[in-house]
Every structure is written in C-alpha cells, then in structure tokens.
C-alpha cells in the first residue's frame, strides 16, 4: 500500500483539428474541476499552439502529453473509439494518473468507457460533481464520490469509485471555468502510443459548420430553444439568442419538421446551462430529459397548461412572436446602458 501524496488528474483535451488551436470551455471546466482534486495534466492528439499552451498554463496545467501514434495510422481514424481509448489508457498508465476526466459527449463517453475497460477502472458517465471522500492521502485508493442527475434531473445519485484510476465523463457547465490562482508553465511531452490497426475504416469525415459567433449548444451558458409553437419561424428565437449571446436549440419535433438541425433531448444533445429559455415548447418527456438539469428555466408558451410551465422558474404565457422580440430589445437596451 502506497501513501498517496498529491493525486494526479488527467484531462482529455480534444480538438476537431490536427493542431489544437483552442481549448473548449468544457475542457477548461474539467481543468478547473481537476484542480480541486489534485495536480492536473492534459492529454491530446494534436500539437498545441503557443496560445493554447498559455491558456493551459493560466489554468494551472503542468504537463501536456501529446500522443505520437504510428505514422501508418491514417489521420482520419484518430477519432475512432478504439484509437482514442488507446491514447487515454496509455496516458493514464504513463503518468500514473488517479483520475481521468473526459468531457461528456457520445464520442467522449465511448472512448472513456473502452479506456476504463482496458485499465480495469471504474467508470461514471455524465457526472455533475466530484470530490474525494475524506482526506486525499488517507488511503489508497481513496474513494472518489461522484454526483449525477438522473431520470431527467428528478433524482440525484452519488456513486463511489474504489478503483485507481477512476474514469469519469463530466457534463458541461458542471463548474464555472476559472484560471488558477498561481499560473504554471505547461510543458509538452511526447507520448508514444501503440495502436492496433482499427477494424473500422473512416470513409468520410466532414466537420459540421457552426453558426458564426454563437457558442456550441452542448456547452453554452445560455440556451434558447424553439419547438412546435414557432410554426417553423426561428426568427424570434435567433433574435433573443443573439441579444443574450446564447446558443440555439430545438425540440425533436421541430428538427423532424426540418425547421432546425440539432435537437435537445434524451437522444439528442443534453444541455445543462445556467439559463435555458424554451419558446413554443410544451415540454414532452423526451425534451425535458435533455434540459431539466438547467439551472434556471424560463418558458414562453401560449398554453398555461403546458408541462414545461410547471418545470420553469419563470414563465410567460403569450405569443412567442411578440414576447421574444420585446425581451430581446429590452436586453439590448440594458446591455447598451451598461456598456
């Protein structure tokens, strides 16, 4: 039995491109969370830019493990689950990490799960809080306690992971990202990774286009969503989102109608922003399952009996085509006065 000194937390720094040009807000949140548990290192598949290293240093990251995969591996396959899992498991073994934190996304969850399988580690997905039980260093392994919101946010569970390392995927907006009190100098270290030839071939991969100037739906602090009540006109929804600097989402019905491309819900995107505004959304169980963990819920609906009204902190009963533009104008006015 070894006495734990300071636990090491490894955070997966994912990037859609070969060069790591930005650090997503969700990753900064994980680094912030990781600092409460121990010393934070990151693992990445790409080369970080000077700006990225400066950001990581400001957030108190020590080492950046940059995976070196075999040159025979086509670049298109870097994001296959089996490849990512090899990178994550190798990094955990290499720096003897106690906790691996991965942003919760479908790809992130699969990679974390397969890495945990290979490491023999316990796995918690979609955690919304993490802490050591008792004093770190009191025992090895020190159980990690993980909070999770389940059944569309109606229940909260706490799990413990007794394995060392523990593998955890964490939902966006679990904490507010904050730079470290004392900055570090993040140092890049090459991480040789052996990868089995993947069984899956990536025939084609194209990055989705992002609405310019809008945050990503998964990790936005504010989300404005539209449903059937928009009747296909997302203009008022876009208007309010722009006034707030929010991401835009929709219900599954609205997406099936072809009115929008991404839906919030149990089988779509799960959001847990500081503020969620649902316009023309009744609040079917499917949609609620994807947004009920939001901190503040506001709804605008014609129908005072809609299930979402009861789930809201603030509800306007009225026509969204009137209410949303008026709210957007008042918010712009407020922002202009403040500036």
């Amino acid at each position: 039995m070894t006495i734990r000194t300071r636990p090491t937390v490894l955070v997966f720094l994912d990037s859609p491109q070969r060069t790591v040009e930005t650090v997503r807000p969700a990753v900064l949140e994980l680094i912030t969370l990781g600092r409460t548990l121990g010393r934070v290192d990151v693992v990445t598949l790409g080369a970080p830019t000077v700006e990225v290293l400066a950001t990581l240093g400001a957030y108190g990251v020590h080492l950046v493990h940059q995976a070196q995969v075999p040159t025979s591996l086509p670049e298109s396959s870097y994001r296959l689950t089996s490849v990512l899992a090899s990178v994550l498991a190798t990094a955990v073994r290499r720096n003897d990490a106690d906790v691996l934190l991965v942003p919760s996304s479908f790809a992130g969850k699969e990679a974390a799960a397969v890495a945990a399988a290979r490491l023999g580690s316990g796995l918690v997905v979609d955690a919304s809080s993490l802490a050591w039980t008792g004093e770190p260093g009191a025992g090895d392994p020190a159980p990690l306690r993980l909070g999770k919101r389940v059944f569309a946010g109606t229940w909260t569970t706490v799990s413990t992971v007794a394995s060392d390392p523990a593998v955890v995927t964490v939902r966006a907006n679990t904490v507010v990202a904050e730079p470290a009190a004392v900055a570090t100098e993040a140092v890049v270290e090459p991480l040789p990774v052996e990868v089995e030839a993947p069984r899956v071939t990536v025939v084609e991969r194209t990055l989705k286009e992002r609405a310019a100037g809008r945050p990503q739906l998964e990790e936005a602090a504010i989300v404005v969503a539209g449903g059937r009540g928009t009747n296909g006109d997302f203009g008022p929804v876009d208007d309010l989102a722009d006034a707030l600097g929010a991401a835009v989402g929709a219900t599954r019905d609205a997406v099936f109608e072809g009115w929008f491309d991404r839906y919030i819900g149990q089988t779509g995107v799960t959001v847990a922003p500081r503020l969620y505004i649902g316009a023309g959304i009744s609040g079917a169980p499917h949609h609620r399952g994807g947004m009920q963990a939001s901190q503040v819920i506001v709804s605008v609906n014609n129908d005072p009996e809609a299930p979402i009204v009861e789930q809201s902190d603030f509800a306007v009963v009225g026509d969204l085509a009137d209410v949303l533009p008026q709210a957007a104008a008042a918010i712009r006015e407020h922002k202009a006065a403040r500036a």
Binding site: L123, V124, T156, T157, V158, S159, T160, A162, Q311, G318
Partner: peptide, 25 residues
C-alpha cells in the same frame, strides 16, 4: 467497480412565477 451509495429525489424547484402577456410579457 462503481457502487451507487445514495439516491434521492432532487429538491423541488421553487414555485414558478407566471406572467400572462398583456403587451409587457
């Protein structure tokens, strides 16, 4: 490798404030 040690209903949300739009919603 993981054990659920606690499970509890989430605390109820505070009562919703409802405003009926009469032009100022």
């Amino acid at each position: 490798r993981t054990v659920t040690v606690e499970a509890a209903p989430s605390p109820a949300r505070p009562e919703v404030q409802v405003v009926v739009d009469k032009g100022e919603g």
